[in-house]
Computed example of a mutant assay.
Amino acid sequence: MNKLELFLDKSALVGNENQILSADEFKNLLGKESFEYIDVQTFSKLKDIQAGEAGIKSALVEVDFAIAETGTVVIDSCNENKRLATCLAEKLFVVMPISKLVASLNDVADFIEERTADMGGYVAFITGASRTADIERVLTVGVHGPKEMTVYILNDL
């Protein structure tokens, strides 16, 4: 199984929607969808908001890395608004250029060390919608993060 197949398998296991798109298809999608927060460096798109009491309905962010063995995306979250958007958005959409897909956690160790060497560094690992259960095993989705996650995989960058 190659890295992309493994990522898709692991990501789908936790309920994520995964879409493989070309850069042109993604640009068209950007023009049609309305996201409250956007941070996509590859396409020079930034729409910054501060999270209020109502929260954030949808956020779109570009990943720094994606880990195939777990279906996890890695995001440098030093920017407070970005950190809040990825944690508070009901629907989190992430953009993953295929070039940012690595095989394992070991492949992002240097990135993590570099970003967290300063005491103000934050790196988020997001595998899917937040899930938690109480002592009676009642499952609740979206308490500590998004309720839904969609991964846009860009195959031609």
Results as ranks from 00 to 15, higher is better:
129 A>E: 00
109 A>Q: 11
100 K>L: 10
89 A>L: 10
94 V>Y: 04
102 V>R: 01
24 D>M: 14
155 N>Q: 04
86 T>L: 09
6 L>S: 03
25 E>V: 09
70 T>H: 01
102 V>W: 00
11 S>P: 01
131 R>Q: 15
57 K>W: 09
130 S>V: 08
20 I>A: 11
119 M>I: 10
8 L>N: 07
105 L>V: 12
28 N>Q: 15
95 V>E: 05
6 L>H: 02
13 L>K: 15
62 E>W: 11
116 T>F: 05
138 V>I: 15
108 V>I: 07
137 R>E: 03
45 K>M: 00
131 R>N: 13
133 A>Q: 00
19 Q>K: 15
144 H>W: 14
33 E>I: 06
83 R>T: 11
105 L>M: 14
154 L>N: 01
114 E>K: 15
74 V>E: 04
87 C>L: 13
66 A>L: 08
86 T>M: 14
50 Q>R: 13
95 V>T: 06
120 G>H: 12
125 F>W: 01
95 V>K: 03
39 D>V: 12
141 V>P: 05
75 I>L: 02
116 T>N: 04
90 E>G: 10
57 K>C: 13
132 T>N: 05
47 K>R: 12
127 T>H: 09
36 E>D: 08
139 L>N: 01
137 R>K: 15
117 A>I: 10
81 N>A: 07
39 D>F: 08
90 E>C: 13
75 I>Y: 00
142 G>W: 07
90 E>M: 02
27 K>Q: 00
55 G>M: 00
101 L>Q: 02
107 D>R: 11
113 E>M: 09
39 D>G: 10
7 F>N: 05
34 S>T: 03
52 G>R: 07
68 A>P: 01
141 V>N: 05
105 L>Y: 10
18 N>G: 09
87 C>M: 15
5 E>N: 08
107 D>G: 01
61 V>Q: 06
49 I>Y: 11
137 R>N: 10
148 E>S: 00
139 L>S: 14
114 E>P: 12
123 V>H: 14
78 C>Y: 11
90 E>H: 13
47 K>M: 01
146 P>L: 07
89 A>Y: 03
146 P>Q: 03
12 A>W: 06
35 F>I: 09
7 F>T: 02
9 D>N: 15
85 A>H: 12
39 D>P: 06
57 K>R: 06
70 T>G: 12
137 R>G: 10
110 D>K: 03
